[in-house]
């Protein structure tokens, strides 16, 4: 993907999610010789009807989750849709158990992981985007390859190594590697950084700044949206990660994702509490999304655009 094309696509994708599409893709010529007005109106109604129906389907599971979360235990098995009594206490009950510890673990993993990833991945992406050196292309291809290959391929030897350092049972085997660059973030940042015109950095260099200073002072501020996007992605990756903690973490160190999955068996299948706990893991994500929709879209588009 050429830089320009990437930029163009990024822009449209950002528009795609953050603003209402300015015009239907089908256009609407003032007086088209084709379709009569009536058919257009019909199409309009049909499209909106389908959209509303789909929306209901997309929202229904979340709604059911919420309604169940405030039911009493008996009612959850009754098939009732609407809670007879709104038991808001379910949320506090859930939080008083293991949830608090899981939450702490999730935050540790996600916050440290994101910080480490930024520290290590930014310089690499910068180098791949701006330096010309022999093997650059190979390096980039390798980054993409590691990004694509399933983590399960290398998990056995890695586990053995971490067991040697007695760090299995904790989340560190998942956090520490992020100090050494994350392929997906490197890839994404690099895709963005190549779109920043070189002139700015060159000007800074003429001013006598070293390469590192140039990166920190000049290029990174311009890359703020991309940085925000990779940070968010990394945060959510860690927050949602189930496989990694399942392999490494002891119950002490479980994050929310693993805890929630065992919640049902541990709580004698109380669906109302299970749903309350599950909902609590969803809420932060939704809030962040509403606050940072634009960042998300740009990020996703960067991933999609490339190929």
């Amino acid at each position: 993907m050429t830089g320009t094309a990437a930029r163009a696509l990024t822009r449209t994708a950002a528009r795609a999610l953050t603003r209402t599409a300015t015009a239907p893709a089908g256009g609407r010529p003032r007086r088209g010789p084709g379709g009569p007005r009536g058919r257009r109106a019909l199409l309009w109604v049909a499209a909106h009807a389908v959209a509303i129906a789909l929306s209901l389907m997309f929202l229904a599971p979340l709604l059911f989750m919420f309604l169940t979360a405030v039911m009493s235990d008996e009612q959850t098995l009754s098939g009732d849709l609407w809670p007879a009594h709104w038991q808001w206490g379910n949320f506090t009950e859930v939080l008083s158990g293991d949830m608090a510890r899981w939450l702490g673990n999730s935050l540790l993993y996600a916050v440290l992981g994101t910080l480490f990833m930024l520290l290590s991945s930014v310089p690499v992406a910068y180098a791949l985007a701006r330096f010309r050196f022999r093997g650059r292309k190979v390096a980039f291809v390798l980054v993409i390859t590691t990004m694509m290959l399933p983590p399960q391929i290398t998990v056995v030897p890695l586990y053995i190594v971490w067991a040697r350092f007695e760090l299995t049972g904790t989340l560190w085997p998942l956090i520490l590697p992020l100090l050494f660059g994350d392929a997906f973030s490197i890839f994404l940042l690099r895709q963005f950084l190549v779109t920043i015109p070189r002139d700015y950095a060159d000007a800074a260099r003429v001013d006598g700044c070293g390469e590192f200073t140039t990166m920190v002072r000049v290029v990174l501020p311009m890359a703020r949206p991309a940085l925000a996007a990779v940070a968010l992605f990394q945060f959510f990756y860690c927050w949602n990660d189930y496989y990694g903690p399942l392999v490494y973490a002891k119950p002490d160190a479980w994050p929310l994702a693993v805890g929630i999955a065992t919640f049902r068996a541990a709580h004698n299948v109380e669906w109302n509490l299970t749903m309350a706990a599950t909902l609590l893991t969803v809420l932060p994500v939704i809030v962040v999304f509403l606050l940072a929709q634009r960042v998300f879209v740009q990020g996703i588009t960067l991933t999609g655009v490339k190929g």
Binding site: Y159, A163, R164, E166, L167, T168, G169, T170, K250, P251
Partner: peptide, 16 residues
């Protein structure tokens, strides 16, 4: 409480 054999085995094999 509530520890399964999987969790026990995992902890022992993992060395912690």
């Amino acid at each position: 409480g509530n520890q399964t054999d999987d969790q026990i085995t995992n902890a022992i094999r993992g060395g912690n």
